[in-house]
């Protein structure tokens, strides 16, 4: 074991300070071997995280997080129109969810990027759609060539005469655009053209008549939804 491995362990323990810490972090930013080493130590110590007393998140804390994330979104409004609105919509949706659930979903979203990265091509964006109990319901992957793949993560009961309709919202003024219908809970692929697939774009699945929504926008209940993220490969 070399000296940097031990220093990585000290870093993972939180022992580095001041100039030593700054120097380590500078190197860590571009040294992949060191990143691997730190991740390994973090993994090895992580059993200790699970021993902490679970504590519930107060409503007051949720409110503060909501307004802060809203402010964060507002500052990026100039460069990425629509993000603030999409974040707000989703905050309302996620509000009742458990904190761990939301965090786990974020984690899942980035992990899926990794799995997708092993195959070619790599999706432009990946979204994990959550049910209103914050459990992951489906994964959406959108590819460069306009393909959108939807993989349900659990069984969804579709009543007779109904279908699941997949939507995406990339322009608030235009409203949700239908990607297509799924008759039951299984992998589906849609071909789209000229539809954007961007970071934070909203995807959702609603329950609609078997032939799809008659008015071109969602009419039935939203079964699950989520924001797209770019997989980091």
């Amino acid at each position: 074991m070399n000296s940097m491995e031990i220093t990585a362990g000290e870093y993972a323990l939180g022992l580095l300070e001041g100039a030593e810490l700054a120097q380590f972090e500078r190197q860590l930013a571009h040294d992949r071997a060191l990143q691997v080493e730190v991740a390994r130590w973090q993994m090895q110590f992580s059993d200790l995280d699970a021993t902490a007393q679970p504590q519930t998140v107060s409503a007051a804390l949720w409110n503060r997080i909501e307004s802060s994330v809203g402010a964060a979104a507002a500052t990026s409004r100039e460069t990425k129109p629509g993000i603030a609105e999409l974040l707000w919509e989703n905050l309302g949706f996620w509000r009742g969810a458990s904190f761990a659930g939301v965090a786990a979903s974020l984690m899942l979203a980035v992990s899926v990027g990794l799995l997708a990265g092993r195959a070619t091509p790599v999706p432009l964006v990946v979204a994990v759609l959550l049910s209103d109990d914050a459990s992951p319901g489906a994964i959406v992957e959108a590819f460069h060539d306009g393909r959108v793949v939807v993989v349900p993560l659990r069984d969804i009961v579709v009543p007779d005469g109904k279908a699941l309709e997949v939507w995406t919202l990339f322009d608030k003024a235009r409203g949700p655009v239908s990607l297509g219908l799924i008759d039951r809970s299984r992998r589906a692929q849609f071909s789209t053209s000229n539809l954007p697939a961007r970071e934070t774009q909203l995807y959702e699945i609603t329950l609609e008549p078997a032939t799809g929504s008659p008015i071109g926008r969602p009419t039935g209940p939203i079964l699950m939804k989520g924001l797209a993220a770019t997989p980091r490969i």
Partner: peptide, 11 residues
């Protein structure tokens, strides 16, 4: 977060 080198939870 780089999922190729570590667990999301630990991160």
């Amino acid at each position: 977060f780089n999922p190729s080198i570590g667990s999301g939870r630990a991160w």
